[in-house]
Nucleic acid binder design. Structure first.
Lengths: 222, 222
DNA sequence: CAGATGAAAATTATCTATAATTTATGACGG
DNA sequence: CCGTCATAAATTATAGATAATTTTCATCTG
């Protein structure tokens, strides 16, 4: 998420806004007003509009023509939808990536998994978790597929952060280890099956909200 | 594809350009120059830029920052990628749609299939084919999934039109009939299996190119 | 003389500033 | 209390200015 000088202003703005939406700093349904954002970044509103469009393409915002753009709401249904799409697409990607996975890649993935088990907060965990998935999927060499998966990951992360706002304990990555073991043993379909189930896994977990009340929350753990 | 007056100018421009890219009027790799397009539409270049961004989100164009935007190239690899993504996502959609399919919907789908078998050209066929798929998938009520599938259909259509530029004979829709029969019989998984195979089916077919030479072409028939 | 190098010109994308529509808001009159 | 009109705010579009890139062409080197 480094601000590359080569990137266009619109891209940089969209990255910052995406960051805020995913982290929850911008709440679902919040209006995104181009003039305000433009003023904040010391820019004009044209690049801001373009940034908004990018967010919309990622599914992080929705725009109603002539009525402005708002941070996309996400209910449980949306979360499940994203999880199922991820399961379907990541399974496909893994099938194609498997033949090209080297020992070195699997070792890196193993390392990422261990890092995940030691993550101090959700934020850090999400990062290494994404790295794990990217490592084992990228060799499929299907750019469009990988881009779609990335967008879905962002949507997942958004939910993840909203669920574990305060308390956090690093999980033990049973599934990640099992996936890597299967891949090492050349059992691609077994790995695919675990991955699909893993991504779709929606665990119930009691979580304390910002207001202090305890409620039931759902979370993707993958 | 009616030009809705309520839509923003950028949206209307993007629709026209998408049409041209899909139909092949704009060839892969062709540069899209904002000033030229703006002049053609009698508009300024800002809405044109936004239109370009929409095309990029759909995968119909690619933009390199400060270097302009080009019509996305598509080779056989890309076609296969799109086909496999469609297979994975349409299978998912059908699984969720199946419980909500009514007899009325299936009858409409049957009608679309028959219309497909009588289509005079690729263009007409593509339209009813899309209608068939939309009819049986929409009841899944997963907006994000359906939007992704729509984009993939556009990419498929693009290839379809490039393959059958001249000659065309309406195919007999074995698969469509089989899918509907399975759905009528409540055999959802059977329908899903056929659909996934159907979408991925890539048939070889000799096709005469614009230059007159005969070459081998591949086509998605679904 | 062929090819490479580098600077100037033209082209193109990007951004800012300003104007024109459209939508939302609140007051007034029926 | 409801509908209409005026005002305010925000989005959408235009035109002009800036910055980057590509092209051209002349010059230098081998």
């Amino acid at each position: 998420m480094t601000t590359n000088k080569a990137d266009t202003l619109a891209i940089r703005i969209s990255r910052v806004l995406a960051e805020r939406i995913i982290s929850g700093a911008l709440e679902p349904g919040a209006r995104l007003r181009q003039d305000h954002v433009a003023a904040e970044f010391g820019a004009s509103h044209v690049p801001v509009r373009e940034a908004f469009q990018r967010l919309e393409a990622q599914g992080l915002a929705i725009s109603e023509p002539r009525r402005g753009v708002r941070v996309a709401a996400f209910d449980l249904r949306e979360v499940r939808e994203v999880a199922e799409m991820r399961a379907a697409l990541e399974a496909l990607a893994l099938r194609h990536a498997a033949p090209h996975l080297t020992r070195a890649i699997l070792d890196q993935a193993e390392e990422a998994t261990r890092a995940g088990e030691k993550s101090p907060d959700v934020r850090a965990w999400e990062e290494v978790n994404r790295r794990f998935h990217r490592l084992i999927l990228t060799p499929c060499a299907m750019p469009r597929l990988l881009a779609s998966i990335d967008d879905l990951h962002a949507a997942s992360a958004r939910f993840l952060f909203s669920a574990w706002r305060a308390e956090w304990e690093a999980p033990t990555e049973h599934d990640h280890h099992a996936i890597l073991a299967a891949l090492r043993g050349g059992q691609t379909e077994a790995a695919v099956t675990i991955l699909a189930r893993h991504v779709q896994w929606i665990g119930r977990r009691p979580v304390t909200t910002a207001s202090g009340a305890t409620r039931e929350a759902f979370a993707i753990v993958g």
